[in-house]
């Protein structure tokens, strides 16, 4: 359990949020031209990183807005929170 600093509401308990998985997976621009391999990559394949991961969260029991987060998956420490469409503040 940890505290998440929602960019719209401030610090709230993690149970108010829902994780949305890996961030920065772009929706295919030309879906009709995708091969099966590319669809598999887009839909199913995940980095599933042990360490610093970029991911999406939604404040489902709050403002219901989506945002991005940088979190260390080895100890659940959050390094940054940033809004959708923004560039990650750390590399």
């Amino acid at each position: 359990m940890f505290i998440i600093n929602c960019p719209y509401c401030g610090e709230r308990e993690q149970s108010e949020f829902k994780a949305g998985g890996e961030a920065h997976i772009e929706r295919p621009k030309q879906p009709t031209e995708l091969s099966d391999d590319q669809w598999a990559e887009y839909l199913f394949m995940r980095k599933n990183i042990k360490g610093i991961q970029f991911e999406r969260w939604v404040h489902v029991h709050g403002c219901r807005k989506w945002f991005n987060m940088v979190r260390d998956t080895t100890n659940d420490q959050i390094h940054a929170v940033y809004k959708m469409g923004e560039k990650p503040p750390i590399k």
Binding site: A19, W57, T73
Partner: peptide, 14 residues
């Protein structure tokens, strides 16, 4: 299970 990726072998209280 929790809904977020984690390798911490700890889960949420809720």
């Amino acid at each position: 299970t929790d809904d977020y990726v984690s390798y911490s072998q700890k889960g949420s209280h809720d």
